[in-house]
Design a protein around this nucleic acid. Structure first.
Length: 313
DNA sequence: TGTTGACCTGGCCGG
DNA sequence: GTTCGCAGGTCAACA
């Protein structure tokens, strides 16, 4: 190759990304309102078309206007991969749907709730949140988590015009708290579970960072070694925090819908339902679970069906 | 192996 | 204003 050609064809030196506080994406098959409010994450607040919360440790304001998604952060960031990953903007939803069997119940849920996505949350925040979730409504879970963040989290740089948001407390901070202090935040009988989990993670006995590199059964078993973590919470953490999309959490809602629609109302154990869900819906069973779960929940709670309204923004 | 009650707390509902 | 059953789960005791 001639020397001159080589110099001309050399790619330009990569320029560092210019840090920005705003970003716009064109998105398809995405419903921000459903995704943030369906019960997989507990730190998002809605005011009209605007959503604000903490994603991957950073305060963010989000607005969806049709196929445009706008984000705003208080301090310039060089890239937005962290938010794209959290929101799973690049998850191939049509390809995921193509893997599912021809299932009338799933088709109906898809038609109604198309655009609902699974988030990818920080594993510790996900584990702590779902440890606090048993026998609580979403609003109550949000309140307890907010108290924990205000008490043991750090204030984050404020978005102009919005209240101060707090980081999710790292395991070491919770590990240093007392059970009574956690109960005072509203954790109730879940307080000793949260404390034990925080200490296990903080001391490296439950290496959350390593679990995504293990197999799903190994990660699930490691989580279930923690006190207070049964099959349901372990599967929620696998699905929403570790990226194991084959996980199929079985809670009371999904157990009801599965027994009704696939087992003619027969009594079937929850472990059997989880195995059935994973084998029927395959490597993306978690997506199927979330659609079936949300469909059933909205059927039983029509008051909350305003979620069906597309974003007004 | 499957079933049952206890565990905190707070919003809801009927009296 | 008060009472009561209930809620997106887990654990341990018991049959």
């Amino acid at each position: 190759m001639p020397a001159g050609t080589c110099a001309e064809s050399r790619p330009p030196l990569p320029l560092p990304d210019t840090p920005t506080t705003r970003k716009v994406w064109r998105i398809h098959d995405y419903r921000l309102d459903l995704t943030l409010q369906c019960g997989q994450a507990f730190r998002w607040q809605r005011h009209g078309p605007r959503w604000w919360g903490v994603a991957d440790g950073k305060p963010v304001e989000l607005v969806q206007n049709g196929t445009l998604l706008q984000a705003r952060v208080p301090e310039p960031v060089p890239d937005w991969a962290w938010l794209e990953n959290y929101l799973q903007l690049h998850a191939p939803l049509p390809a995921i749907w193509a893997t599912f069997p021809d299932d009338p119940h799933l088709h109906r849920a898809r038609a109604q709730w198309h655009g609902l996505r699974l988030l990818r949350q920080p594993a510790w925040e996900c584990l702590a949140s779902f440890l606090l979730s048993s026998c609580k409504r979403i609003e109550q879970i949000q309140q307890v988590i907010e108290r924990l963040c205000r008490r043991w989290g750090d204030p984050l740089p404020a978005l102009e015009g919005l209240p101060t948001l707090y980081s999710f407390p790292p395991p070491g901070r919770i590990a240093a708290a007392t059970e009574a202090e956690l109960r005072a935040c509203g954790a109730g009988f879940r307080a000793p579970y949260l404390l034990a989990a925080a200490r296990a993670v903080d001391q490296g006995r439950c290496p959350l960072d390593e679990l995504p590199r293990r197999t799903y059964p190994e990660a699930r078993a490691a989580l279930m070694n923690l006190p207070g973590v049964g099959p349901k919470i372990a599967d929620c953490v696998c699905l929403f925090g570790l990226g194991f999309l084959e996980a199929f959490p079985v809670d009371t809602w999904i157990a009801r819908v599965m027994r009704e629609r696939y087992f003619r109302g027969r009594r079937v154990s929850e472990e059997t339902l989880a195995e059935f869900g994973r084998s029927r819906f395959g490597p993306y069973a978690g997506y199927a679970q979330q659609y079936l779960f949300h469909d059933r929940r909205m059927t039983d709670r029509p008051r909350e069906a305003h979620l069906h309204n597309p974003p007004s923004g």
